[in-house]
Simulated assay, not measured.
Amino acid sequence: MDRSSSDALGARAGEGAEPSVPPDDPAGELAPGRRLALDVHQRLRAMILNGELPPGSVVPQAAMARELGVSRTPMREAFRLLQEEGLICARPDQRARVRAVDPEDLDDVYGTRIVLESLAVTVTAPTLTAEDLDRMADALRRMRELADTGGVDDWHAVHKEFHRIPTQAVGVHMERMLASLAEQSERYTRLAHLGGPVSCARADQEHEALLTALRAHDPAEAVRVLARHFARTGLSMLADLSPEYEPRSTRTGLAMVIGGGFPA
């Protein structure tokens, strides 16, 4: 593939999305093959998140490689990254598919996210500077503006930035796990079309409460706000997508974090 094709793919891949994995080379010295694989990954990820590749659809490597004008090697690496993020599933000798809506998976994602992100906030809160909190406030302001203008893709990008700041002190391994959970959460929130006036207003209040607790140097309150925020989001989606499902993981994670005991 010539340079112009590669540049065009990179431009398309970056629309409305940022890499879900930390950069392997902050200095910008990635090998061309690795850079291309990440560009392909971003493009496919965007297609999954925006519904261009809907849940359950087959994603054939060879056909996608031809469509995007790349070889099979970067396509295989892109597929590997998508599998790690839980966006596609593939068994040996079978074609990959976009993961279908699975209430058990959604429940596990939010139960795990409640526990891990609460730990990350507890670790990070004492290290946050005034500049960090100002960055959170700026992200919250931009989220409000984007909610008013309907910039869904940009809102999700800023939303991830907002939640990343109060967890930034964790190590690389946990950072990757949190990024993967955030990706899966975003996919479900998009599928559930969460974004009505009531939902947005409540989420905004919870984001403001999280920032207020961190400014007050009250990590315990910050964790309570965060845990309830994720629980409300996950439980709302489960009620909408699968009202008959009993969300044990989400409720148990919430009980563990806020100290309300374990569900019977």
Results as ranks from 00 to 15, higher is better:
30 L>T: 02
86 G>N: 03
25 D>M: 04
231 A>H: 14
72 R>Y: 01
105 D>C: 13
248 R>M: 14
205 Q>R: 13
207 H>C: 00
92 P>W: 01
264 A>M: 10
132 D>S: 07
123 V>G: 08
159 H>T: 00
151 G>K: 10
82 L>A: 10
92 P>V: 09
240 D>T: 12
146 L>F: 05
94 Q>A: 12
4 S>G: 15
220 A>N: 09
75 M>K: 02
186 E>S: 14
222 A>V: 04
46 A>Q: 00
50 N>R: 15
58 V>D: 08
112 T>F: 02
113 R>A: 15
12 R>P: 10
233 T>M: 14
260 G>V: 09
80 R>P: 03
37 A>W: 00
153 D>E: 14
17 A>E: 13
55 P>L: 05
11 A>D: 10
26 P>Y: 03
197 P>M: 07
5 S>M: 15
35 R>N: 09
196 G>Y: 11
261 G>C: 11
152 V>I: 14
100 A>G: 09
53 L>N: 05
234 G>P: 10
32 P>L: 02
182 A>H: 02
238 L>P: 08
35 R>F: 04
91 R>A: 12
256 M>E: 12
172 V>K: 02
168 Q>G: 04
11 A>K: 11
76 R>D: 10
221 E>R: 15
143 M>S: 02
58 V>I: 06
15 E>R: 14
250 T>N: 14
211 L>R: 00
247 P>E: 08
42 Q>H: 06
232 R>L: 12
157 A>R: 11
228 R>C: 13
176 R>G: 07
262 F>D: 10
241 L>Y: 00
193 H>P: 09
199 S>I: 10
69 G>P: 11
233 T>W: 03
204 D>L: 07
116 L>G: 07
205 Q>F: 04
102 D>Y: 02
118 S>A: 13
240 D>K: 15
36 L>I: 00
74 P>T: 05
168 Q>R: 03
233 T>A: 10
13 A>K: 05
109 V>D: 02
228 R>P: 06
201 A>K: 12
219 P>T: 04
138 D>E: 08
54 P>V: 05
71 S>V: 04
31 A>G: 06
148 D>N: 07
96 A>S: 05
24 D>C: 05
96 A>G: 04
86 G>K: 04
206 E>D: 14
34 R>T: 07
122 T>K: 12
234 G>N: 01
146 L>R: 04
193 H>N: 13
177 M>C: 04
236 S>T: 12
185 S>K: 14
218 D>M: 11
100 A>E: 12
100 A>Y: 01
156 H>K: 10
161 E>Y: 01
162 F>W: 00
230 F>M: 14
176 R>E: 12
230 F>S: 10
232 R>P: 08
